[in-house]
Simulated assay, not measured.
Amino acid sequence: MKKIYEGKTKTVYQLDDGNVKLFFKDDVTGKDGVFDPGENQVGLTIKDNGYYGLLMTKLMFEKIEQAGISTHYISANLDERTMTVKPVTVFGKGIEVICRLKATGSFIRRYGEYAKDGDILDYYVEVSLKDDEKGDPFISEELLEKFKILDKDEYKTLEKATKDITKIIQKTIEDKKLELIDIKLEFGRDKQGNIVLIDEISGGNMRVYKDGKSVKPIELSKILLDM
């Protein structure tokens, strides 16, 4: 097993059989010690966050696979806090896809003249380039095609998959009397060129509210998993 990448929230290893293993850390994104899924830097470390993040990721990926949506997921080892996944290539140098159900966070910082916190956005999809130094700039469908990152058909496939996945996650969350506000997803291409969901789906990459207040990542995992 060879380490190939040290990420903010995961370490990535290459396996001898060609698959990839992800180790889930306890680090989460945020700023000044406050958790924020919209930030592009590690903001704090939460004990056992990696374990609970993997538990929730396993639950969500299995639900998504059962719905017929392709992912890179193969299996999870909870004792090791690792997930084995299929090898994929990323779009360009990596993109993030945000699906927003309500306006908050960076959306209000950008569009506060036209929207107020809590406005309904109805599965609005945004794409940003993974670039920490430049603050993960948002990019239009037109530029994605111009830069040969995604063509129009691939964008439509990615946009539909994002909305379908978000609805699956939203249903799971609403069943526990919680509210999904927004979620950040990642996609790549498998060996056959198909667009597949990659990375993780945990409390660390979504905003969920309970009675109007943000639910912390570990608390969310415990609620969803009846722990």
Rank of each mutant, 00 (worst) to 15 (best):
F147D: 14
V127A: 03
D131S: 11
A115H: 10
K116T: 14
K152N: 08
E154W: 00
E133D: 15
D136A: 01
K163F: 07
T166Y: 03
E133R: 13
L144W: 01
Y114G: 02
K152G: 03
E133M: 04
E154H: 03
Y114Q: 13
E159S: 05
Y114M: 07
K146D: 15
E154M: 10
Y155N: 08
F147V: 12
G118M: 06
E126D: 11
K134F: 02
D132R: 10
T162A: 10
S140W: 07
I120H: 04
F147L: 15
L121H: 03
V127I: 15
K130E: 13
Y123W: 01
L143F: 09
D131N: 15
G135T: 09
E141L: 01
K146W: 07
L158S: 09
L143W: 10
D132P: 02
P137I: 08
K152P: 00
D136L: 05
I149H: 01
K130T: 10
P137V: 12
A115Q: 07
T162Y: 06
E142K: 12
L150C: 11
T162H: 03
A115K: 09
A161P: 00
E159R: 13
D153Q: 10
K163A: 09
Y123V: 01
K160V: 14
D136G: 04
E159V: 05
E159K: 11
D151N: 15
Y114N: 10
K148W: 04
D132H: 02
K160I: 13
Y155H: 10
D153E: 14
K146T: 13
L150Q: 04
S140F: 11
D119K: 02
D117F: 02
A115R: 06
K130A: 03
I120L: 12
D136N: 11
Y123A: 07
I165Y: 00
D153W: 00
K163I: 10
K160D: 15
D153V: 04
L143N: 11
F147E: 13
S140T: 15
E142P: 06
L144S: 12
E133C: 04
K130R: 09
A161V: 04
E133I: 02
S128I: 00
K148F: 09
K146L: 14
L129M: 13
E141D: 12
D164L: 06
P137S: 09
D153K: 13
G118H: 08
